[in-house]
C-alpha cells in the first residue's frame, strides 16, 4: 500500500510538474512534501535513495519524499532551479556546467566516491595496461557525454592525437561491441558492466574493464543538489533530507542489508534478475563506500577541483566556477 501511495505521489508530481512553474512550492511547514529527481531510472545506482524512502528514513525526519525517476530528457538542475524539484541527482560535469551558466545550485552530497564510468574490452583482443595503450584502438564514446570529456582528457594526458585513435559514436545498443567492431565500449561498471559481463560470460568470452580513475583522470560522478535558495531559507530541511539520504545509503551499502536492498530495487527494476542486482550492489558498494563506509556521501573537494580543471582544459566551460563555493557538505 505504501508503495502504491508513493508511486501515486510520484505520478502526481510528474503529471503536475509542468504546471507548477509559476507556483514553486517550498511550503514545507508541517509534513514536508519533497520532490527528488533522480538522474536515471531506479537501479543499483539509486540503492540508497530507494532504501531511505522504503525503510522510512525520510519519514523519520518528517519528510514525505517522492522519488522521481530520471532519464535522458530529465535535467535535475533545471528542475531544481524552476522549483519543480527540491533535490536532484546530477553528474559533476552537469553541475559545473550549470554553475558556469549561473544556475543557483549547491551540492550537498557526493554519491559516488569513485566514478563508475569504465570502458569494457576483451583482453584477448585488446591489451590495456595504461592510458598509453589507447593508441590505435577503436574507442566508443558518447559524443557530448562526460565519457567524451574523460576520454579526451586521457588522450591529451598521454599525448595521443585524435588521429591516432578511432572514435566510435555509441548509443544504447551494444551490438558494435558484440560484433567486435569496437575495442573499448563505455559503460557504468556497477550497472551495465554487470549485465554485459554476464552476456559475455555466457558466450564464453573473457572481458575486463579500463578505469580512467586508475589512469589518473579523476572525474566526479553523481552528486545530490538543491537550490541555493532552499539551503539559505531552510537549512534545517536540507540537513534533514541529507541526513536521511546518507543513512539510506549507509543502510543500502551494509552487507547485512544487501538482500533487502536488492529486493527493494527489484521492485522497480524488474528487467534485471535479482542475482545480477546483488552483483551490481556489491560493485556499487566499492564505488560508494570508498575507501570505507564512513566516506558515504563525502564531498571530495580535490576530485571536484580536478573535475573543474579538466572541464576548463577541455573547454567545456569558458570560465572557472570556483567549485568549492558550491559544495556544502552537511555534518550529521
Amino acid at each position: 500500500m505504501a508503495t502504491f501511495w508513493h508511486s501515486s505521489v510520484a505520478l502526481l508530481v510528474a503529471l503536475l510538474g509542468p504546471f507548477s512553474l509559476f507556483s514553486p512550492s517550498f511550503a514545507t511547514a508541517a509534513d514536508e512534501q519533497i520532490a527528488y529527481r533522480l538522474k536515471w531510472l531506479i537501479n543499483a545506482s539509486t540503492a540508497g535513495d530507494v532504501v531511505a524512502e522504503a525503510e522510512g528514513l525520510f519519514a523519520a525526519e518528517g519528510l514525505q519524499v517522492a522519488i522521481l525517476p530520471g532519464g535522458p530528457e530529465r535535467d535535475a538542475i533545471r528542475e531544481v532551479e524552476l522549483g519543480r524539484a527540491h533535490f536532484g541527482v546530477a553528474s559533476a560535469d552537469q553541475v559545473i556546467r550549470g554553475l558556469a551558466k549561473g544556475a543557483p545550485i549547491v551540492v550537498v552530497a557526493q554519491l559516488f566516491q569513485v566514478n563508475p564510468l569504465n570502458w569494457i574490452y576483451r583482453p584477448e583482443q585488446t591489451t590495456i595496461s595504461s592510458g598509453d595503450d589507447l593508441r590505435g584502438k577503436v574507442i566508443g564514446v558518447t559524443y557530448g557525454g562526460n565519457d567524451e570529456t574523460i576520454l579526451r582528457t586521457l588522450l591529451q594526458r598521454h599525448h595521443i592525437g585524435e588521429e591516432e585513435v578511432q572514435l566510435f559514436s555509441v548509443r544504447h545498443d551494444y551490438t558494435p561491441f558484440y560484433q567486435k567492431k569496437v575495442d573499448l565500449w563505455p559503460l557504468y561498471r556497477n550497472a551495465q558492466g554487470v549485465i554485459i559481463g554476464e552476456k559475455l560470460r555466457a558466450a564464453g568470452e573473457a572481458f575486463a574493464f579500463f578505469n580512467p580513475d586508475q589512469a589518473g583522470v579523476r572525474f566526479v560522478a553523481n552528486s545530490v543538489i538543491t537550490s541555493a535558495k532552499l539551503l539559505a531559507e531552510k537549512p534545517e530541511l536540507v540537513q534533514r533530507f541529507t541526513t536521511a539520504l546518507r543513512r539510506g545509503w549507509q543502510l543500502a551499502m551494509a552487507p547485512e542489508h544487501a538482500e533487502r536492498t536488492a529486493e527493494l530495487i527489484h521492485r522497480f527494476d524488474r528487467e534485471t534478475p535479482l542475482p545480477l542486482i546483488r552483483e551490481q550492489l556489491a560493485l556499487t558498494r566499492e564505488l560508494v563506500a570508498h575507501p570505507s563506509p564512513a566516506d558515504i556521501g563525502r564531498i571530495d573537494l580535490v576530485a571536484w577541483q580536478e573535475t573543474e580543471a579538466i572541464m576548463l582544459e577541455q573547454k567545456q566551460i569558458d570560465r572557472p566556477v570556483d567549485i568549492a563555493t558550491a559544495l556544502h557538505p552537511l555534518a550529521e
Binding site: 524552476l82 551558466k101 543557483p104
Partner: peptide
Amino acid sequence: LLGLSDYVIP
C-alpha cells in the same frame, strides 16, 4: 520575469 539562469534559458 522568473530570474532564471543561463543554464535553464540562455
